[in-house]
Amino acid sequence: MSANSRPAHGEHPTREALRMFARSPVAVVGFALLGAIVALALLGPMLMPADPFDIVAAPLSPPSFQEALLGTDQQGRDVLTGIVHGGRATLAVGLSAALVSVLIGITVGAIAGFFGGTIDEILMRVTEFFQVLPALLFSMVLVTLFTPTLMTIALSIGAVSWTATARLTRAEFLKLKELDFVAAEHVIGAGKGRIIWGVILPNALPPLIVSATFAIGTAILFEASLSFLGLGDPNRMSWGLMIGSSRSYILSSWWAVTFPGCMIFLTVLAVSLIGDGLNDALNPKLRERR
């Protein structure tokens, strides 16, 4: 197994994609940015153990070095502590909502694309139904039906945002299922489940990984929208909740909304940059290998 004796084109596809990813400046910036945000969310609360719901100063105090570095909101809560503590909830909702959306999307798309015919017809009608549904409104309905917790918020965001992944997966499956190596798999007697999940899906992964990355960004924005409309979990500090609770004071006290807004913006930007980088690294590779 002398890796260095192999010709360059014989490099493992995954490793080559990683190398291309690491070479793209956009991807590296996105990765560094997201790394910093994740580190802040994970480690910050330990460094600033204060309760983000505690009142520390007069309501709506502007940023100052004496009291609150980034100011306080309309209840006198520290914006900086809120930002440090709110990252976990925002990222957790973003990740789990994206996971839910990708899982539903891949399952629906894979089954539709693989089986075709009536099954495809029905699943695609369902997908269209969810696609024309006003997503924000529908997830608002879902969240209000259940109590808004991180879990129900993630589920309701996932439940309205899977259609693009489903279409992408279906298209990949339609293309891949005709290929010889899939026929070869039928020929050795492999079952349908194994062919769907173990043979076709791994080949469809590159574009799906890219789409899953973008799904995280979308889900974070979604969570912010829900919180802004007052449908977030009121007991967990999140950036969306901070914006939502201070939204009436945006003109008089810009800091209470702007700082958490910047965090959301930076996070979504980082995720999109990574998605772009992955797209560049994975897609040309995909075309070259077929």
């Binding site: 596809p13 290929l179 010889d180 190596f181 026929a183 798999e185 043979v199 791994p202 080949n203 290998r289």
Partner: peptide, 11 residues
């Protein structure tokens, strides 16, 4: 099959 280049799973 006829086409050995495409009969094996690339991943």
């Amino acid at each position: 099959f006829q086409e050995p280049m495409t009969s094996l799973n690339p991943v």
